[in-house]
């Protein structure tokens, strides 16, 4: 990088510092102190916030959140891979249109999209209305784990499809032909060539879905009701309801750690040696 280019990077560096580094430092500061941190003289360091996090109650919350995020991620993968594969096989004339149709809902606010599911799944929602019309009894669809998972899969599916689609569409078609040429039928070609080569996309997709899924509070709040706590809703509660910013910060930092660790584990599986860009990290 020459001097001039470095110069152009300054605004970004400053922006990063103000909006990313500074808040994290502040959150960290809150997490290791008691009460307010705005008065340096009365500042009081403690590790109690972290100790509290390891209380079985909160460990349970964490495990529940991770479980939910994992299930959503796996479902997104199972649904998203075939979708990405099909889109990449569509004739290039129509491919962008299909892709656009797929991304379109993402332009809408996530809150709205999630509300939409409430009206679909609710007790007086579309599905139950339809069941009643057929003379069947209503079933309880909202406010349980499945409704949260439905909401997550719906909201985060495009984040799985896009990186996989990118990896697939960038793949040299001659490699598939070479595999056929060497005697591999369609199934073997998929397993030995297409799947391994799209792995970077899959890993990006998993990260892109798992991260927001583990920390989301809108979806558990709207579709899960208040029946059980998740990390996202726990943090929200601590900040907005209880007002315990210090413990809230500790939970937030722990969540960041969880995400960081899972990301670095995943990156180990990244076989993409040329860093082909479908890897978003």
């Amino acid at each position: 990088m020459n001097k001039k280019q470095k110069f152009f990077a300054y605004p970004y560096v400053i922006w990063m510092f103000i909006f990313i580094v500074l808040p994290i430092v502040l959150v960290f500061l809150y997490s290791i102190t008691t009460k307010e941190v705005n008065n340096i003289k009365t500042i009081n360091f403690t590790l109690n916030n972290y100790k509290l996090f390891f209380d079985p109650l909160y460990i349970g919350v964490t495990i529940r959140s991770i479980n939910l995020a994992l299930v959503s991620t796996i479902l997104c993968l199972v649904l998203g891979y075939p979708i990405a594969y099909i889109i990449s096989k569509i004739h290039s004339k129509h491919r962008n249109t299909v892709l656009l149709l797929f991304i379109l809902p993402m332009w809408m606010n996530m809150l709205l999209r999630t509300y939409a599911w409430m009206t679909i799944l609710g007790n007086n929602g579309i599905i139950n209305n339809f069941l009643n019309m057929l003379g069947l009894p209503s079933i309880r669809l909202l406010y349980n784990n499945s409704s949260i998972i439905i909401g997550m899969v719906y909201n985060f599916l495009p984040f799985m499809v896009l990186p996989i689609y990118t990896a697939l569409s960038k793949m040299d078609q001659h490699l598939v032909e070479a595999s056929h040429d060497l005697g591999a039928d369609n199934r073997t070609t998929f397993l030995k060539v297409i799947l391994p080569l799209s792995l970077p996309g899959v890993i990006s997709g998993i990260i892109m879905v798992f991260m927001p899924a583990v920390s989301s509070f809108v979806i558990p709040r709207l579709l899960g009701g208040n029946r059980s706590l998740y990390i996202g809703t726990l943090i929200e509660n601590l900040f907005l309801v209880t007002g315990d910013w210090n413990f809230g910060s500790a939970v937030a930092i722990m969540m960041m750690l969880i995400i960081l660790v899972s990301m670095s584990i995943l990156n180990r599986f990244d076989v993409d040696k040329e860093g082909s860009g479908s890897n978003l990290w």
Binding site: D172, A178, D181, L182, K192, V193, L197, K273
Partner: peptide
Amino acid sequence: PYKRQINTVFQKYALFPHLNIYENIAF
């Protein structure tokens, strides 16, 4: 193609980037 006793050397080689030389030849 996979049932023909014909093999091809492609113009751009089309070697598998995720496999090393040994595995490419062994494919």
